[in-house]
Design a protein around this nucleic acid. Structure first.
Lengths: 141, 141
DNA sequence: ACTAAAATGATAATGATTATCAATAATATT
DNA sequence: AATATTATTGATAATCATTATCATTTTAGT
């Protein structure tokens, strides 16, 4: 169960026009972290009458079958990101100046995770964020 | 500028009854991560007429002078934690079973931070969370 | 005491998300 | 193909956490 197509197939989850539109938006924005509002806006370019409730419902469903990741970056709203195969080992760098979110392809948390597991925990996931001014915002200050 | 007392003193920030009550609540709950609602509830035990706007205002002020940490654990609301001296080098373990939040006193992120800084970023802070079933919840499953 | 500035509490407003529900669309059954 | 059954949709209302507003009260400085 790896590819998006397989995940959709095994979820007995009907692929309607609006759902396809939302999926397309997410695939067009691979690597970006979109809010529900942004997804709604872009999905309406493909399907003008799509409602926001449908967007929320669909994003949640897609997240539940791990086609999307749903994360909160501490700004009070969720953001959704296409779940590229094997790409969950990445961290985020959030710039407090411009708000841009960059990804970082590394892990190196194994030592910490071993420590936690030795205390009897069962690790499901981790989430590492750095708050750092990006080169552009640094030069502006 | 280390202790809470010093931070308060140098912030020219008036210590009123309600603010003292809120601070007391946070100090009574050292190590816990309280939501604004929980702080309000506990503060009203000391001062029944305290309003929720005051709680929000005070928590934000205390966070701005680094007496508290304000963090969002991905559940859509902020939580506040007393900022023990030199204790910001810690990570959180969140149990998806019972919701309990445990702290972990380690850092080891230097290698990653060096990597980010070498790309021209200026790191302000980081935030590392592990989602892991705690020993009790594991045995229940 | 007197004035100016800051803090408070009640309440309204906001913004993101979720629930409701009647109408519509898709699938299964005959 | 016609109908029954179930899922999905969009509009709208409801909710929840947080923020803004504002008249009143409290505090600090003179």
């Amino acid at each position: 169960m790896n590819s998006i197509e397989e995940k959709l197939k095994y979820s007995n989850y009907r692929i309607t026009g609006q759902r396809a539109a939302i999926l397309e938006v997410m695939m067009d924005n691979r690597g970006k972290h979109l809010s529900a509002e942004e997804v709604l806006y872009r999905a309406r370019e493909k399907m003008p009458n799509i409602g926001m409730a449908t967007v929320y419902r669909t994003l949640d469903k897609l997240a539940s079958i791990e086609v999307l990741y749903k994360t909160m970056f501490g700004e009070g709203r969720y953001r959704y990101e296409l779940c590229d195969e094997g790409t969950h080992q990445h961290h985020h760098i959030i710039c407090p100046g411009c708000g841009r979110i960059t990804e970082m392809e590394d892990d190196l948390l194994n030592i910490l995770e071993q420590k936690i597991e030795s205390q009897g925990y069962e690790i499901i996931d981790h989430d590492l964020k750095f708050y750092a001014y990006c080169p552009e915002c640094r030069s502006k200050r």
